[in-house]
């Protein structure tokens, strides 16, 4: 888009009154919406800085005193530290591997000429609805000798069917012209996929990478089952343990030993949540970079 066109567009908007009303309402709505979205975060931040004076039962947003001791305690918790490292490693390995697997699965399935395409899609979608459940899955992981290994957390979810379908659909919506011209130049499917398809699929690849990263960051159940060594546990398991401590959900177990247990105060819980959440929040701005208009002019089917 050229510069004067942009200016022209802006001018045009300025002149139309309904448009102006719409814009102001839109901005207003967005601001209010953002305030509500920020609220729980600010609440947690405030509580984590409160030196234990406020609790989950208050709605206070501004702490009386600012005190970083909760963070100091959380960051000196060895489980938090090892959990953090394990989770970072997990996400670091999972995202590239999963994306590679997704793309390699989605690309053939996006081609109308790939044999038995319908069957293979069904073959994959079927697994979204029918699974053998926990016991046989555990036996498979144990049989492969993956217990207590990071691969137990990555391999079972290597190709998430849902994400794969989304990527496949995106590939399908791309115009075939690009591919055909490359094929005339003698490129094979690998080259076409990597040189042509992937670059113009940046927004969807970025989105699914974000989903994968967040999914692996937040996953806890698989780790709770497959990882038995405390030092190999992921962050979310540690987080859950701290946050759920003493709450209704843990009640049944605490009977009998609850009297001696020291329950983490709410400011520690809040600080734990913040420490475990902020790093993954920082990923989004990087993803946004790829949401650029006109990144693939003319590459979509009209």
């Amino acid at each position: 888009m050229s510069k004067d066109m942009k200016i022209k567009r802006k001018n045009k908007i300025k002149h139309s009154i309904p448009s102006l009303i719409f814009d102001s309402m839109n901005y207003l709505f967005m601001i209010i919406f953002c305030v509500t979205c920020l609220y729980p975060f600010l609440f947690l931040v405030s509580m984590s800085l409160s030196a234990g004076t406020s609790n989950f039962a208050s709605l206070r947003l501004i702490p009386e005193v600012i005190d970083f001791s909760a963070y100091r305690r959380v960051l000196s918790n060895e489980f938090m530290v090892s959990g953090f490292i394990n989770t970072v490693i997990r996400v670091g390995i999972a995202v590239p591997l999963v994306m590679l697997a997704i793309v390699f699965t989605a690309y053939p399935l996006s081609k109308k000429y790939f044999p038995h395409r319908g069957f293979w899609t069904g073959f994959i979608v079927f697994t979204m609805f029918f699974s053998g459940g926990l016991i046989p899955s555990y036996l498979v992981i144990r049989g492969l000798g993956l217990l207590d290994s990071i691969w137990a957390l990555i391999l079972p979810g290597l190709i998430p069917a849902y994400n794969m379908i989304i990527v496949r659909n995106y590939f399908m919506s791309l115009s075939p012209d690009l591919e055909e011209s490359a094929r005339i130049d003698g490129a094979n499917d690998f080259t076409i996929l990597i040189r042509i398809i992937l670059p113009i699929s940046a927004p969807i690849i970025a989105t699914v990478s974000l989903w994968t990263a967040v999914g692996h960051w937040n996953a806890w159940f698989d780790s709770m089952i497959y990882i038995q060594k405390a030092s190999k546990q992921v962050l979310q398991v540690v987080l859950r343990r701290i946050v759920l401590e003493g709450t209704q959900e843990m009640m049944d177990l605490n009977t009998g030993m609850d009297d001696m247990a020291s329950i983490s105060p709410d400011n520690i819980k809040a600080a734990t949540i913040m420490v475990a959440t902020i790093p993954i929040l920082l990923v989004y701005p990087f993803v946004q970079k790829y949401f650029v208009k006109g990144i693939m002019v003319g590459s979509l089917k009209g």
């Binding site: 926990l134 016991i135 555990y138 036996l139 144990r142 159940f221 709770m224 089952i225 038995q228 060594k229 405390a230 398991v237 859950r240 343990r241 759920l244 959900e249 843990m250 177990l253 605490n254």
Partner: peptide, 19 residues
């Protein structure tokens, strides 16, 4: 000593019994 998370005690212990 088996480390079993108390939040999902029954699920995990049953799984290990079951296998």
């Amino acid at each position: 000593i088996w480390n079993i998370d108390s939040g999902q005690w029954h699920e995990i212990i049953n799984l290990r019994f079951a296998t």
